[in-house]
Design a protein around this nucleic acid. Structure first.
Lengths: 339, 339
DNA sequence: TCTTGGCACTCCCGGGCGGTGAGTGCCAGC
DNA sequence: GCTGGCACTCACCGCCCGGGAGTGCCAAGA
């Protein structure tokens, strides 16, 4: 019974602190929330919660602030993701439906997520892993330059310019095109890449040019470039960090330009539709010690082709943020499914 | 004679203030620079400079700080762009040469420029205006969906998915492809768009699908999307603003996500290779009242296909920044020329 | 006419100081 | 196990004050 009330106190502390950004005291707590007990009782509970490491006080005789552990318990056990309102859902659908291509979906998502959550939004560009090759084309630009274009089912178009070591006439280009297209069209990337291996060193005169073209295609489909990209938006929301710019915001801004780090952060998100939350010091990223990351995967069906989420101060509105992240991920998935 | 010394004093004030970020007094001035006169003399000159509106003091009995007008005079008459060292040039060339496509050039340029100048870098994506159409392709995905792909001489690939109102077999797709390609291949965008107009409402059964395809092509080449995009980097360098985050950096971060505004800022850059500097309140952008923009155009030959530059506090190292901006623009131009 | 040393004045900045108030811990009583 | 009471602890804020950098002005010298 007391245990239950203590959790209620923790929840109240988290909610108040998130709302006011100030340490919350026992008196204010009983006034603002309908706990039917006296401040003294709450103080006892707070002492117990502090004993457990769930809350802490910045200095003696100040109110209490949740610790990372406290937020963790709050997120895991004290809250449920609140569903978005119909109006919010409509707004999301309207904005994302206007996208003209995959890149545009990503850009719009980032913007939308930043606006919804008032935090820094991250959206990973979709990986090509599950895509199939829709179309391959070779375009002879000059006698020794060929543009290789691969169109993938995700809607992405990858291109490479190939410099040949000797002139090639149109028929020869068409020949290579036909051979390559026959082997990989309709296949998923992994299969296509494997199949190209057999073409890399073919018999006959065209070995050189064809190898070069094949290499370019393998490179274009190798997934690295596109999956290593993350769109970032809403950096102005870093102002929510009340702290000084130099100590808290600058390193964050720097980290946000390091897309490799962001990918790792987003990569922690579990597949399968659940929203993952990383709080404060959890994980090895010192730059993000005072921040939480709320992320999830997106993609058609159950399979994630990318992750998206937000970065914000540990003192954030977790239920609302998680709801927004989940909602945007769902709509992005749906749109990618349609395209 | 005195006039000359006064300008020397102004130059010294600008240089010292840029270096120290603190109001500079008469005594420190004669010590750090080799002006062969006494502090009292300098004080008289300072009073004259203040009279002309070139410098100002934050409060009585403080040192002097250059005004926007002072910086303007400094940039226009007191400084020359200092050439980059050979090592710096090599570094620029090395970094940019590794780019795999146009988008990669832009991304690398932004990063490079931010590192060189320690400021916020902006690089506009190349406009398509001067590009020619290298290749057009139509790919039938299903019976009622066609992917339209246009490959431009700039290396950019534009694509649109077209939903048809009725099924179309492969022959019909090939037919439209042939007709469209015949009309626009090799032409510059403007001509191609005009030529497409004649195809929009052709005679015969295929009027519907062909119109849709033509519309998509016109849209893809309409230049709006790509030229409305700006890559931004080095936002962490906003820390150089010593002021409080909320009043000075937050509005800037917000403005930096408004790419329309950035395009206008960059658009002020003159064509023809000169580096343009906008200082402080010059221009209608209240968000950028405390910043200067150093920008220039880039592109193969004399024609600018895009602009790039940096945004920083008015108190910036103009000679160095202008040198970096010019150098990066030149190398980007060269690379685009080669591609 | 310009430069220079001297001098009084201004005002920002940082440190020290006491009052105020929110919040706590503890204890005795119910 | 809850509650009211009470003494205690600090952060915060406004205040004062001295130090110091820098200025403006003036009279004398080149």
């Amino acid at each position: 019974m007391q245990d239950e009330r203590r959790l209620a106190v923790l929840r109240a502390i988290v909610e108040d602190y998130v709302a006011t950004q100030e340490p919350v005291g026992s008196k204010a707590l009983v006034e603002r929330h309908g706990l039917g007990v006296s401040p003294a009782t709450v103080r006892n509970d707070m002492a117990a919660l502090e004993e457990e490491g769930l809350i802490t006080q910045p200095h003696t005789s100040a109110g209490r602030v949740p610790t990372d552990k406290g937020y963790r318990l709050f997120v895991d056990r004290l809250t449920t993701i609140k569903p978005m309102s119909a109006a919010e859902k409509r707004a999301i659908a309207t904005i994302l439906d206007g996208a003209v291509d995959v890149d545009d979906v990503v850009r719009r998502s980032v913007r939308l997520l930043a606006q919804l959550t008032h935090q820094v939004a991250l959206v990973q560009y979709p990986t090509l892993n599950r895509s199939t090759v829709r179309h391959v084309d070779l375009v002879g630009l000059t006698e020794t330059r060929v543009l290789v274009v691969a169109i993938l089912s995700s809607g992405r178009v990858e291109q490479r310019l190939v410099e040949l070591d000797r002139p090639l006439d149109d028929d020869a280009v068409a020949d290579i095109r036909g051979r390559v297209a026959g082997v990989i069209t309709g296949r998923i990337i992994a299969e296509a890449t494997a199949a190209l291996g057999d073409l890399a060193a073919p018999p006959g005169d065209d070995a050189g040019p064809q190898s070069l073209v094949v290499d370019a295609l393998v490179d274009a489909m190798s997934d690295h470039r596109s999956s290593e990209r993350v769109a970032v938006g809403g950096t102005a929301n870093l102002a929510r960090f009340g702290d000084s710019f130099e100590v808290s915001v600058r390193p964050l801004l720097e980290a946000l330009e390091e897309h490799v780090v962001l990918l790792k952060l987003l990569g922690e998100a579990q597949t399968g539709g659940a929203v993952t939350v990383r709080i404060g010091h959890e994980g090895p990223y010192t730059e993000f010690a005072t921040t939480s990351v709320v992320a999830t995967g997106y993609g058609p069906g159950q399979e994630a082709v990318g992750n998206l989420g937000v970065v914000g101060p540990t003192r954030m509105d977790y239920p609302g943020t998680m709801a927004s992240v989940r909602a945007v991920a769902r709509y992005v998935s749906r749109i990618l499914d349609e395209a």
